[in-house]
């Protein structure tokens, strides 16, 4: 089976039967979007909530705002239609439980949901939070999102 790997702060789009996967999501958020009619899917491995503070954005896929925008553009190039799009998200954990680190995972998730709401893209599954890493595989053929963890089992949503 043809699976496209998406690295950290990267994104990719595909058409079924191709699948998309990203491994080792911690506080990053994996944003999976697909158009059930054309079976065009996209996955962005978002690292940071927004690019407001950044003077020059070198890598749009790194930020929720620019990343989701770019993901949609690329999906539309493959024939996806925006008002049919549906989303599933995973990640946004806090890997170092009790630390004083900024709650980036939560902020990433909040920002991603806010952006998807603004775009009127429904979020069908939200597998975010906790303090563990996730690997995800997204299948744009049926919209299934497979989630694998080390100590918290695996599931399909």
């Amino acid at each position: 089976m043809d699976v496209i790997k998406v690295g950290m702060a990267d994104l990719a789009v595909c058409k079924a039967p191709q699948k998309l996967m990203t491994a080792g999501l911690g506080s990053c958020v994996g944003v999976c979007i697909y158009d059930p009619r054309t079976k065009v899917g996209g996955l962005a491995h978002i690292m940071l909530p927004n690019s407001d503070q950044v003077k020059v954005v070198h890598n749009k896929a790194k930020y929720a705002d620019t990343g989701i925008e770019l993901l949609l553009e690329k999906m539309q190039e493959l024939g996806a239609i925006k008002n049919r799009m549906q989303a599933k998200i995973a990640g946004g954990a806090q890997m170092f439980g009790n630390s004083t680190m900024m709650r980036i995972g939560e902020r990433n998730t909040e920002e991603v949901i806010k952006i998807l709401q603004t775009l009127k893209i429904p979020v069908l599954a939200n597998e975010t939070g906790g303090n563990f890493g996730r690997t995800i595989i997204f299948n744009p053929d049926n919209g299934e999102l497979y989630i694998k963890t080390i100590n918290h089992g695996e599931k399909v949503v």
Partner: peptide, 24 residues
Amino acid sequence: QSVPSLAYDMVGAILGNVLQLYGE
């Protein structure tokens, strides 16, 4: 130096979390 915090998990998830603190 601050008190260390520990994670026992996927290395991508751990490094990603640390890298995020740097942003750009």
